[in-house]
Design a protein around this nucleic acid. Structure first.
Lengths: 215, 215
DNA sequence: CATAGAGTGGCACCCTGTGCCATAATCTGC
DNA sequence: GCAGATTATGGCACAGGGTGCCACTCTATG
């Protein structure tokens, strides 16, 4: 029953990605255990019926400890989504400055999501909860809208809309909405992959919009 | 201390808008009492610190009864927002069919909000809570996104995007996002009124988009 | 006035989330 | 290794959100 925590001073040599002290690795380990236990239970009985006591038991920690890793049950979600937002922001910031700002944002979202899907266990199941459970839908949208400032800032830095922050805010928000809707369609429409749905949504946003060069 | 409930058989005659039986009017009355008590308390101490016990006490009902009027504390919000969404949908549906579909949607949102602001006590304070309290932000966005199906349906009926439902969905969602962002700016930027903010946001969406007639 | 049905309040109960404290584990310097 | 500082953990108590249940009150109807 006891699972082992990877040791740093072990005989088989420390792997490069197992960075940090034992304490840090342990923390990371328990975090993943809780996360996994939670998602397993969500899949079994749904979000609302999965009590924190049950999640904790499944993860092998006390209820009190759960709250030291996640402030609320919903934070289990925001967690994944925030991480996803950071990925997108990083890629966006790393894109060549010569690229059209909106096109760079689109690229960042598409490529980040391709990677995200590969990394995530049961991405569609997770997404299902986000769309079906009203509680989670709110959290999801709230997390999405929290991406706006960072994306808007990068748009402004790249002189989209001549650097007008209000317009960049709105543009970022619109792209997040397209992101959401593309996921919704991907979830509901089997057979069409996510990148295609994203591209369709983005095309509709910029459809017939003439990106007039900054003066 | 005792407030009186408008009687139907009173000497001063029944007012036309006080329709329904005594039971129904009483229900409506208590509903408003709770709603008002809640918003007053929210303004005083914030959403989180306003306990349901305190709201109920202020409204003169028991805690148990509160939950017979509102399933959750957050529902106090969704309530207003849903109502607002219905208003918009009604106006949209009532617009002349000859009008450009997207323009009709814009008109509906603008005029509905003008009326809404007049009807609402402290509209900006309410909005403030929606943007500042993370819990409420999620609820707000979730309620907003629940408008999408109805608006999309009406867009499709009016042959926007040649009736393509996927595109209408996205368009409706984008307009809701513009709606949200306009409110955000209105809240943060004193001195510019809401209709102006809405118009600015809408202009950016359709900016340079050529509404080609449906073939 | 009598009776059915809806509204109400009080109670017990479970779950979420937090503060507090004792205990156990890790880290640091020796 | 070892002692002390630091941090993680678990258990407990407690406030608040939300629900089921039951007795009681009020309305609607005849």
């Amino acid at each position: 029953m006891q699972k082992t925590i990877p040791t740093s001073g072990g005989e088989q040599g420390t792997k490069p990605q197992d960075s940090g002290s034992l304490r840090e690795r342990k923390h990371e380990f328990v975090l993943r255990e809780i996360e996994q236990a939670a998602w397993d239970l969500f899949a079994d009985v749904g979000f609302d019926r999965a009590t924190i006591a049950a999640i904790s038991r499944r993860a092998g920690v006390s209820r009190r400890t759960f709250f030291r890793y996640f402030r609320t049950k919903e934070e289990l979600l925001s967690y994944s989504i925030m991480h996803c937002g950071q990925r997108i922001a990083q890629r966006f910031a790393g894109a060549p400055k010569s690229r059209n700002p909106l096109a760079a944002l689109e690229d960042a979202m598409i490529s980040a999501m391709q990677e995200e899907i590969e990394d995530t266990r049961q991405p569609k199941e997770m997404l299902g909860l986000m769309f079906e459970e009203p509680n989670l839908r709110g959290r999801f949208l709230c997390a999405l809208s929290s991406w706006v400032p960072a994306l808007s800032k990068e748009l402004a830095k790249r002189k989209a809309y001549r650097g007008d922050s209000a317009r960049c805010d709105l543009a970022a928000a619109l792209y997040c909405t397209a992101f959401d809707q593309a996921h919704l369609r991907w979830y509901r429409e089997p057979g069409v992959d996510l990148p295609t749905q994203l591209k369709r949504a983005f095309r509709q946003i910029r459809e017939s919009k003439n990106h007039r060069p900054a003066r």
